[in-house]
Design a protein around this nucleic acid. Structure first.
Lengths: 209, 209, 209, 209
DNA sequence: GATGAATGAGGCTTCATTCAT
DNA sequence: CATGAATGAAGCCTCATTCAT
């Protein structure tokens, strides 16, 4: 009757929530939102329907949570990469693209959720996904604005969209191919980065790795 | 054995089928595949469940038909544009991009179906959609290969994906914005075309309209 | 404007009706009543839905017509056999059983309709089928009554049912087996006839063929 | 992790399942497989569609379950009867027939399901039903083989089918008659048993009860 | 008479969500 | 907090039947 929530309980709580979330990410990534049913998630997580609705408001909610987790993972990966890239903006951008491609290539389920499976899911989720993508787009836009002087004039908002679209679509296409016919991830990343950098008129030196 | 199929009957048949297909495209474009139900389609087309299944095998089937119609419309638009662009490949490519952007901007429902709503829908539809997008990608790839000598070396397959992705994502982003805040379609098209052409290393002259 | 119905027309009419009926019998016999759809019947008969409903009131109607055709074929086969069997009643009965078994074995589709597929089909058809079977049962009952003196006392109505049931069930069972594992039809007929004759207490001499 | 399945829950589960199954048996027996719809079953059982599909895979499944329940009831009735009949095989057979007839006469819905309504329902159900009937047939066959020496030579497999068919058809016929015109069940059973025993050439003594 | 397009009632089934234990 | 049985709305689809040509 003493403590309502001991530390151990909190831990367990998180553990169960995570188990559900992890299972959900795997299933969403493999089968998509609609083909993934709540019963399947709870089965995969060795949990129960009741628990599911204790931790998540509904199916949309866990999908949104999944998107957020993915978004955070990506942010982290990008930030680390950028931090390691030194102060030069174009170099940071190149590094960021490559980090993003690598992340998506290494986490195909997350990639599918982000790029493919979260389309056409109703306003709420579309918004969550949009924000995620938009945060990338905005980063690109910021960067471009910061070095505006070094580059030819351009419609930065549109260019930022193109930049992100180029990454997503080509990774998507790459993921759709049978693994044994894929270009090595490194080359894919390099090719995309070059495409984008050239597209914004980066000087020749930064195009090579 | 008397009356076979009179021309008038054939006409009506086509009309009915088209009514269903048109209604379906509108709904798919607005609400997506899953939120569009067969009852809603038949209601919008002033038809009946029975007729629906007389003309289409099932819901997937009409979606595939919709994608095909869209694909054909786009092909036609692109071919016309390219034909009018003269013999120079890079100029053709620029024209094609702009024609595509214009088409998508003018047909937002079709655009949504193509870009967003047809992802993550199961193998059959994914294939149809893939073929459609792939046909664009391949066209780009062909063009790039044809003028390989004039351009810096590149991973053409990846570049083609980037090219298409840049178009789709930026148009999508544009469509998501409230109409009164949108860049004029012409400028959008111009910006995307420039992005892509610069990305493949086109000489400065072709970058301007 | 002269004759409303020429003989040739009557002929054609019959021909089309027969085509439908024949196709229906084949399909009913193979797939059963419910799995046989009107579209399938008209397709198999190279006819049309409209014609179907011109010649038959509805699906039940054509099934009833099929049962009648089958009943008539069987009656004819039995009458011929009995006529050829001479005046002795028990010999007639034995002949009749064997003729029935042969007919069913030779016409498996008709047999399936009569024995299997027409069960559980609603009052109307059950009645038609029942009358058919009942007419056999009654024949048996008549015969038994006619020679009451030569046989041990028995509940003739029940015995007649048993007699018919023995035939149907064993033919049914026989039909269900793969053709290459079946007893030859002649032996089957013989075995059933013996069973029934012995069951009514027929003297030893008539048990053999 | 606290409360697992309490005994009370298991009890309720069984109760709910049984309610559905019982309602289904009644409806199947009265209206047949096709005329019995899932909504009707759940209404009769005061349950819900969801529960139905929680306990049974589909409509076929509950029909199969019904057949199994019926089969078990019959087996039990027969085994009890046989056990009480002493060691003599022919006497056991006579007892078994009478027990079966009594069971069917006492359970007309179950009888209809077994004899009539389960024919022509597709492979799966046909198999279940076949196995049920076949188990009777085989019992008869075993018995006949066991006492082969005391009986005239015969095609035991065919004879077993005849035996079962005689029972089913005559009970069916009996059930079809209005209750007030029916022979008392005891006499029916006696008549059928005599028919079958005489048919296999049983000596006169066992023919009487 | 013949044709086949059109209709719509109604069946089966799934699954997100709730709630008693 | 955990469990899983229960619910029922709603979707997809089939098919017997009608009717305009």
């Amino acid at each position: 009757m003493a403590y309502r929530t001991t530390p151990k309980m909190v831990e367990r709580k998180q553990a169960r929530r995570n188990a559900l979330l992890t299972a959900a990410i795997r299933l969403f990534g493999r089968k998509g939102f609609h083909a993934t049913t709540v019963p399947k998630i709870v089965a995969a997580a060795h949990s129960s329907t009741g628990s599911f609705y204790f931790y998540f408001k509904n199916k949309e909610d866990i999908f949104a949570a999944a998107l957020e987790v993915i978004g955070e993972s990506i942010s982290q990966a990008l930030n680390e990469a950028i931090a390691a890239a030194g102060p030069e903006v174009l170099r940071q951008m190149r590094t960021a693209v490559k980090a993003l491609v690598r992340f998506l290539a290494d986490h195909p389920e997350e990639a599918r959720i982000l790029i493919i499976e979260s389309s056409g899911l109703g306003k709420r989720l579309e918004t969550v996904r949009r924000n995620l993508v938009a945060s990338h787009t905005r980063s690109v836009e910021h960067a471009l604005t910061a070095i505006r002087g070094q580059l030819p004039p351009m419609e930065t908002a549109v260019v930022a969209s193109c930049w992100v679209g180029a990454v997503y679509e080509s990774v998507f296409h790459w993921l759709e191919q049978p693994p044994d016919q894929r270009l090595p991830a490194g080359q894919l990343a390099q090719a995309i980065a070059s495409f984008n950098l050239r597209a914004v008129g980066a000087p020749r030196e930064v195009l090579q790795e």
